[in-house]
Every structure is written in structure tokens, then in C-alpha cells.
Design a binder for these strands. Structure first.
Length: 513
RNA sequence: GGCCCGUUCGUCUAGGGGUUAGGACACCAGAUUUUCAUUCUGGUAACAGGGGUUCGAUUCCCCUACGGGCUACCA
């Protein structure tokens, strides 16, 4: 059992788009596997045929790819030695294990109809008891434990619908060791006889999960805390199937919570609170409803992954910015926290800003050029790089670049009305005229030179430089804010700056009078 | 209701029997950029409560409170 090659899996069910909690689970699995030099695989748990959503599986695969956390085996990533990796395609192999449990007396057939189950629940609740199908209640239900042997046989042979339930022992402590939480002990009297095999011939999650983890030689099960209550059931299954010596170790991750109020982060919260809860945009195939994604919002995948990694895990130091490689080498399950983490959309923006700053001007230029081309901008690459250097200091996202710095490529269409209202008057207009003439005569049009000339002109005109600086900025860019003013001026160049001042004078003079 | 898990600034968290309880986001204030949305500096702000154990508990134990999860022929 020791010295086994570490193998972990991410096992989502294709019932919709993967939300960020799921992505984080995948990420932690990936980090753990890489750190241990093991394998990370993807298994699709589609045993519920009613909840199948077209496109969900493709979405999951694409999301993992976008995040850069690719499995080495599994659906969409090349079949490994344990194919198939879709539970629906593994259907034939589960029945044998259900039968093994039946034979060993750890499971039994149950024939109760929906109505009968419902009635039992009502009866139990009315009596103040718990409504579970368990060691007590099973005695008054229709199953192979209560029915005469020949009737059971007859029912089975006549093709009557049945399920297979696990027979939970009446009085036993079931212990689960969790790598994050330590020992968790549950008494079997609190557990119920879960269905293992459904009447449609499919296993339930519980059976399929155990069988697949065993056959795929999974060593560590890293999954969300919502699975903790069923972990004792899984331990029992490993035991009854005779696999306890190779049972994987469990690690139940804290949940991602809503930023406001309480509760598990849900699909609805995103649109309600104005941030994406999905890595990629998702269009619901039935309702056509569109949910926004981090990719489409302009987040860098590495920023997104970095942010997610820190939600529930922390290195021992104060470092917060990690490359994926650094995350791999730093990661350990021991440092995963126990309490749920409220998701903070604000900090997510900050992460993206940090990654934006880290990108070189050339990289960002490369990423931005498609948008510029689409807008029909014609500019030399070297010029774009210089503009990017100035723009990136002001933004959080690449998709803000255009609104932040379109004036590097075309003249402003309008001028910030607040600034004009506040600063545009006869004396400032006189200053702009004066400045334009001075710039025209300037030989060396650098940031340094233009700035000192600007100041000299202000002094000459008898106006405070601070009074007209923002106005000047608006005249050439249209915007009230932006990067270092005179660096902007230098990059635009003399001809352009003078031209824009002229244009501003024409437009604003008219408007003013 | 029952069972299980959890609880350090508003949020993510570090820490751990003796600390000025550290960092980051957000927020506020100053500085600087004679403009600004950048940057810099500073600040506000936390150990849920009660009992133990101990010379000493935020740290260990118990209880309470609060929060969360699960309680399907869903995963």
C-alpha cells in the first residue's frame, strides 16, 4: 500500500458548467499530483442520465485546458490504461461488484416503490424519528431481508424493478481519517442503507466511485467537504469489497462561500453580485441563458489560478503571487485550511492587475494587436509597445486598454466635460494658444523639454501650471486621467500634439462662446 | 429535527502556551507625480462567549452560541 505511485482524480458530473469551486478542487488535485510526482486524471461521473447536460463535458475539458491544469489521462486528454473514463461507458463492470456485495451479505435487494418510500418517511417523521432506510426501518419494507426467499426470487425473475442497498451494520463505529481534518467518527446507527445500484441498471455515485477509484488505482481522494458525510459509507464499501488495504486517503476541502451572507457559492450568485462564478462563459442549451466567465471578462488564466489557489490554501510565508510551478513546489494538503472561504471578487481583480504588470510590454502588445487590427488601427509595432508601457500602469485588464489609451492611435472625439467646465476659460484658452505656438517652435520634443517649456509658458502667461495641466491633458487625450503626461506627449510627437491643440481650440472655443 | 465539519481584522489568511497577534485585498488619511485612475508612506480594524488545565491561554480540553455541509433510485 505504501510506495504506490500517487494517483488522484478529478471526477465531476456533466450536469452543467464547472464552477470555480470545482475548478479549485481540480487545481488542488493537480498540484498534489505534480508535487508528488504522480498522475492526475479526469473521470466523468455521468451515472445520472436524467441530469445530463449537453456541452457540459466539453466545457469541463476546455476549462481545465484554459487553466493550464491538464490531466494525464481521462476523457478529452487521451485514454490511459484504465479506459474508458466515462462512467456511463463503464456500466457493465459495476453489476459484478454489486453482486459480490449481495453474495457476502453486505447488500440486499429492495423492491419498495417511490410511494412506499414516501409513506415510510412520512410515518417516521410523524413519529418524531429519522426517516432513513436503515437497520430499523428496513424490517418493515419490501426487501430481500424481509420477504421470503422464493418471493424474492420470483420478483427478480419476473423482472420487477429493484435496487440494491448496502446493509449498514446496526451498531458499529466507522472511522475515517481525513488528511485535512483528522479522524472523523460516525456511528453506523446514524447511517442509512444507501442505494448502490439503481433500478435503471446504473450504479449510484457511491458504488461507481469506489469501484472506479479502486480499479484506477487512486491513492488520494481530494474532493469538496460536501462529501464528508458520505465518506464513512465509502469506507464501509472498501471494507466489504475487500479493498481496505488499498483504500485511498481522503482529503475534504473547505467550501467556497458566497461573498455576502452565508452559504455555498452557487451558480446564481455570480449574476446577482456581478462577478463570474465560472471560468468560461456558458450558454445554457435549454434556457439560452448566458453566464459570464473569467476568460471572457479578460482575466489571465494564471492570475485566475493563482487567486483560486489562495482560497483555502496558504504557504507558510507572506508570498501571494505564485507561478503554477511555484504552487506545485509549495503545495501541501496540510496547509489547506479547514474553514470555508468567502469568495472575494475584489481581490480577484487585484490578482489580475498584478499579472498585467508582470507581463512585458512586448507580450501585452502581442495580445492587444488583434483588437487594434479589428479596430482598423494602423500603427508601428514599436509605437504600440511604447503606448502599452504607459497604458498598462493604469489598468487592471487588457480589455481596458482601448478605453484607456485609444488616443494614442486616434484623436479624441470628445473632451471630459467636468474638466472643461471647471478649467476652460479665457485665460486658460490663452495659455493653450500660447503653448501651441511654443511647441511648434520646439526642436527637441522630449518629455523633459516639453515639460519645461510647458512650465515656462505657464509662468509667462501668468497662470499656475497646476491650473492648466489637466486641461492640457484633456486637450490632447480627451480624458481627465492617464499616464505620465509628458511621456505621453513625447510619444505622440510634436506634429500630433500641436495638431490636437489646434483641434481642441477650434472645438472648445466654439462650444464656449 | 438528526448527524458531521468549522469559528484570528469587513474579506483571504500567518502565527501559536509568554508576540506591539504579522501579511494581502478593501477602506481612510497624507506624500509625490505642480493633472489623474499609478506609485509611496501611514492609519482604522481580529483571536465568538463561558468554563477548565496552567505561573501564564488567542493557542490545549469541555460546554454554549453562531456558521456551514449532508440528510434522493443527484453527484
Amino acid at each position: 500500500m505504501e510506495n504506490r505511485r500517487v494517483r488522484v482524480r478529478f471526477a465531476p458530473s456533466p450536469t452543467g458548467p464547472l464552477h470555480i469551486g470545482g475548478v479549485r478542487t481540480a487545481l488542488y488535485n493537480y498540484l498534489f499530483a505534480k508535487k508528488q510526482g504522480g498522475d492526475f486524471l479526469l473521470r466523468i461521473e455521468d451515472t445520472d442520465q436524467d441530469r445530463f447536460v449537453p456541452g457540459a463535458e466539453a466545457y469541463i475539458i476546455e476549462a481545465l485546458k484554459w487553466c493550464g491544469i491538464c490531466p494525464v489521462e481521462g476523457v478529452g486528454f487521451g485514454d490511459g490504461p484504465h479506459a474508458p473514463y466515462r462512467q456511463s461507458e463503464r456500466k457493465p463492470m459495476y453489476r459484478a461488484y454489486a453482486e459480490q456485495l449481495l453474495k457476502s451479505g453486505n447488500a440486499y435487494y429492495a423492491f419498495d416503490t417511490k410511494d412506499e418510500l414516501e409513506e415510510m418517511r412520512k410515518r417516521m417523521e410523524a413519529g418524531g424519528g429519522t426517516s432513513a432506510y436503515n437497520a430499523i426501518t428496513r424490517q418493515s419494507m419490501k426487501n430481500s431481508l424481509t420477504l421470503p426467499e422464493d418471493e424474492v426470487k420470483q420478483r427478480l425473475e419476473s423482472g420487477q424493478a429493484y435496487v440494491v442497498r448496502i446493509k449498514i451494520p446496526r451498531n458499529e463505529e466507522v472511522r475515517v481519517q481525513d488528511l485535512i481534518r483528522g479522524w472523523v467518527v460516525v456511528h453506523s446507527s446514524q447511517m442509512d442503507d444507501k442505494v448502490l445500484f439503481k433500478s435503471d441498471g446504473m450504479p449510484t455515485y457511491h458504488l461507481a466511485n469506489i469501484v472506479d477509484d479502486y480499479t484506477m488505482q487512486i491513492t488520494h481522494v481530494i474532493r469538496g467537504e460536501e462529501w464528508l458525510p458520505s465518506a464513512p459509507l465509502h469506507v464501509l464499501l472498501y471494507r466489504y469489497l475487500g479493498w481496505e488495504s488499498v483504500m485511498p486517503q481522503f482529503a475534504h476541502l473547505p467550501l467556497l462561500l458566497k461573498p455576502d451572507g452565508n452559504g455555498k457559492l452557487s451558480k446564481r450568485d455570480g449574476d446577482r453580485l456581478g462577478f463570474p462564478v465560472f471560468p468560461l462563459e456558458w450558454r445554457d442549451p435549454v434556457t439560452k441563458e448566458v453566464s459570464s466567465g473569467y476568460r471572457e471578462r479578460g482575466y489571465f488564466p494564471d492570475a485566475f489560478v493563482n487567486m483560486l489557489a489562495l482560497l483555502g490554501w496558504h504557504s507558510s510565508g507572506n508570498q501571494e503571487l505564485f507561478t503554477l510551478e511555484e504552487l506545485v513546489s509549495e503545495f501541501s494538503l496540510e496547509r489547506v485550511s479547514k474553514a470555508g472561504a468567502k469568495f472575494d471578487p475584489e481581490k480577484t481583480k487585484w490578482f489580475n492587475q498584478q499579472y498585467l504588470r508582470k507581463r512585458t510590454d512586448e507580450e501585452l502588445t502581442e495580445l492587444w494587436i488583434p483588437e487594434l487590427n479589428a479596430k482598423g488601427v494602423k500603427a508601428e509595432r514599436g509605437y504600440i509597445v511604447k503606448a502599452v508601457r504607459l497604458i498598462k500602469e493604469k489598468g487592471n485588464f487588457l480589455n481596458e486598454f482601448w478605453s484607456l489609451g485609444s488616443y494614442f492611435f486616434e484623436r479624441p472625439e470628445k473632451y471630459d466635460p467636468e474638466v472643461i467646465k471647471k478649467r476652460w476659460n479665457d485665460s486658460s484658452m490663452g495659455f493653450i494658444k500660447e503653448l501651441k505656438e511654443a511647441f511648434e517652435k520646439l526642436e527637441v520634443f522630449t518629455a523633459l523639454e516639453t515639460e519645461s517649456l510647458f512650465k515656462a509658458t505657464a509662468e509667462k502667461t501668468g497662470i499656475g501650471a497646476g491650473q492648466v495641466m489637466q486641461l492640457f491633458r484633456v486637450c490632447i487625450s480627451g480624458l481627465a486621467g492617464g499616464p505620465a503626461l509628458f511621456e505621453m506627449v513625447e510619444l505622440l510627437g510634436k506634429q500630433e500634439v500641436v495638431g490636437r491643440l489646434e483641434m481642441a481650440l477650434n472645438q472648445l472655443e466654439r462650444k464656449h462662446s
